[in-house]
Amino acid sequence: MNYQFDLFFIANGLWPLLKGLVVTLQLTVAANIIGLTLGFVIALLVMSPNPILRWPFTLFIEFFRCTPALVQIVWFFYCIPIIFDVYIDALTMGILAIGLNLAAFNAEAYRAAIQGVQSNQYDATIALGLSPFQRTVYVVLPQAFRSALPVLVANGIGAFQQTALVAIVALQDLMYMGKILATDTYRPIEVFTVIALIYFAISFPISQLVEYIERRGKAENS
């Protein structure tokens, strides 16, 4: 192999990559806010004894878990404007697509954590006369969030990586700007290697945080 790496063109194109990274981080943060909040609400609705509330959100979870994220993103970008005659800017559409996908996966993490809350906790809240809303906010949510945190963080990392899929619909994220730079410089190996390192540099510390949280949780429970 006689190929020689040349990072000169990457250095000159670093600013567009940084602009793309800003869009990627905006997508990630906003999608995680949706995923963390909406995921908990969906988990509660899925656990409702009322089938009218339970089944639609069960189908919501299964749809997003059982279809490729790429298909979901393309469907949001091209089908929603046609079907509903609603036109939203590309960044907002990307946030909704990734956020709803993340909410479905987080809902399952929350549901498992809620089911792990000990029954005597519920008995204590009833004895104290707490309303269902107070019980949920002050007792169930803190414990479920703490138990589900490693999975929620891991899902958040996955959402960060999935943002690369929005490049296919021309949203100018890190991956999209990298594709343009690779085409302009004819240096795809260098460009996509740098992009991979950027994703790794952000994801790896967070993954280590997940492992630390899991180890600490096991130590506290032992």
Rank of each mutant, 00 (worst) to 15 (best):
S131M: 05
L7E: 13
Q115R: 11
T92Q: 06
S207K: 03
F64R: 01
V117S: 11
K179R: 13
V137W: 15
P142S: 00
A144V: 01
S207M: 02
L18G: 07
L128P: 08
R187W: 04
G13K: 09
I33E: 06
A103W: 00
Q4R: 10
A154R: 10
A144N: 00
I195M: 04
P16D: 09
N2P: 00
A11C: 08
I157A: 11
K218F: 03
A201L: 10
L21S: 11
I98D: 13
L174T: 10
E220F: 00
A164K: 08
F8S: 12
I83H: 05
I61N: 04
P16F: 01
R146I: 03
T28S: 03
A182E: 09
I95Y: 11
A104G: 08
P16W: 01
L44M: 13
G158F: 06
G35F: 14
I157Y: 09
P132G: 06
S48F: 14
Q143L: 07
G178M: 04
K218L: 01
L209F: 03
I73L: 05
G20M: 08
N106R: 09
A124G: 15
A196Y: 00
P68C: 09
M93V: 13
T185S: 05
S203M: 02
F64D: 00
K179M: 06
R216K: 15
E214I: 12
F84H: 02
F60L: 05
A97V: 02
G217D: 01
Y87L: 15
F40E: 02
P188C: 06
S147L: 10
F77M: 15
R111L: 04
A148K: 01
I202E: 11
L152Q: 10
I189E: 05
D85K: 14
F200I: 15
A127K: 11
T92R: 05
I189G: 06
E190M: 13
F40S: 10
Y78I: 12
A104R: 07
L130G: 04
A167K: 12
